[in-house]
């Protein structure tokens, strides 16, 4: 049990998917302008990433490995993720309309979120067991949400500040992300 907690902490804080491993930067810059959208995106990523982590692990272990098809991993995973996102979208629309409304537009965006694909590949590369993969998927996604929400908070304040013209919008966003990343850097060596 202790191992899992350690693994979770290292994924959320020390190896934060966004600020230490640079995965998922596009939605990070795109959806962090408002707190609401940041929370929506964070929730959607947690939801999809846990499912994608589980399914891709099973596919790797029971389909690709036994038939020596590892070289098809990239294409198999991206197809799984794309169809999973579509499926989740349809399922939520029918059964949990409230959640669907909340996540709404963020769900389709997740297909091209490299954090999802990245974590699935990390799970395979590190040779995690099924349970470990579930733990890492959930904690990486939580780390993503955490960074996104923190960053959205900072960005809402920047809107009120006077920023030099050439630095406006994305440029100042990136510099701020650098500062936030520096803060997360302090966790290095904790685990």
């Amino acid at each position: 049990m202790g191992d899992y907690i350690l693994l979770a902490i290292s994924c959320v804080l020390v190896n934060n998917i966004l600020l230490a491993q640079y995965l998922g930067c596009c939605p990070f810059m795109g959806t962090s302008k408002k707190m609401e959208t940041a929370i929506g995106m964070g929730m959607a990523v947690i939801f999809v990433l846990v499912m994608a982590g589980a399914i891709t692990w099973l596919i790797e272990a029971y389909v690709l490995k036994p038939f020596n098809l590892e070289y098809l991993r990239t294409i198999a995973f991206i197809l799984v993720i794309a169809s999973l996102v579509q499926f989740v979208e349809m399922f939520l629309r029918k059964s949990i309309p409230a959640l669907y409304k909340g996540l709404g537009i963020f769900l389709p965006l997740i297909t091209t979120n490299c954090a999802v694909m990245g974590v699935c590949l990390i799970n395979i590369n590190e040779e995690y067991t099924f349970v470990q993969s579930l733990v890492t998927s959930f904690s990486y996604a939580t780390g993503f949400g955490l960074a996104l929400v923190l960053f959205a908070g900072v960005r809402e304040r920047i809107l009120l500040a006077r920023v030099p013209k050439p630095l406006e919008d994305t440029a100042i966003g990136l510099v701020t992300a650098g500062m936030l990343s520096l803060a997360f850097f302090a966790f290095k060596g904790m685990v």
Partner: peptide
Amino acid sequence: EAPGAFVCLGLMLCM
């Protein structure tokens, strides 16, 4: 390191 990457890209965008 990671923070440098963000800051560097931000400043280049500014340029």
